[in-house]
Amino acid sequence: MLVMNQVSKKFGNFTALKDVTLEFDNGIYGLLAPNGAGKTTMIKMLVTLLFPTNGEILYDGTDITTLDEEYRNVLGYLPQEFGYYKNYTPEKYLMYLAALKGMEKNTAKQKITELLKLVGLENVTNKKLKKFSGGMIQRVGIAQAMLNDPKILILDEPTSGLDPKERARFRKLLNVLAQDRIIILSTHIVSDVESIANQIIMIKDKKVLYKDSITNICEILEGKIYETEVEIANAESFRAKYFSIGERQERDQMTFRFITEEKAIDPAWRNVRPSLEDVFLYIYQDDATLAGSTV
């Protein structure tokens, strides 16, 4: 079990995270928050790139800095910005990383072949990485994270730069990898975790706001999400009155998806089931990066 116990992180006078306490058991965890909320800081502490200012991170009861190599031996990490040696082939680069992970040459070779096949790169093993598309590079990144068959797999914004088809493929891949390990998936894209995460962690104001299943989190907005049609001429005043979380224009009407604490005062309002995205938009409504979403 991986535990963050009262973890805080400061950079000078700036507090990035405050008193974060979390427990991770086997399963997929979606770390969901807008950019700049502290996701990457949290992840970097979990992978020993950063160290907490206060608090401790324990793996099976021992501090991960004390475990040192022993902890990193069970860790797989795909950083937000996955760097690579552009003149290396994926096979060669993975061989290097396998050596850093302390793997024997023959075991590494076998594992690399297996993983490159798993991520669908078995036909380009001898092609230089500089010729790879963003999606292919990301798949190499996933392969490297899986090299040592990690007990803890941490993926920071793994789908950034991927097209929708590749995202779907990635989610499928994660489902295959999800057995008997902790997977922490950091993202600001709700759809990345909506269908695969067992639990969602939301960070706000430097603290953990929710750590629960998607169903439970969505209950927060149960009975508060509606959809309705509004004349285009009245759209502005509607927006001013209600918190719109999605809009769609159809002929001379606007369809609004909105949140209100009021009971349905208009018979045209249709109560709808809240989605994770609705919760996300509701929680981070004052965050500038959320502007411009659609129904």
């Binding site: 020993t48 040192d68 031996n73 990490y77 996955f82 760097g83 690579y84 850093l100």
Partner: peptide, 20 residues
């Protein structure tokens, strides 16, 4: 090398870590 190729995050979180 790792910092200039942006591979530090991967290299230094492997088992060998900072001993690299």
């Amino acid at each position: 090398y790792e910092f200039e190729n942006k591979t530090a995050a991967v290299s230094y979180t492997a088992k060998r870590g900072r001993k690299l």
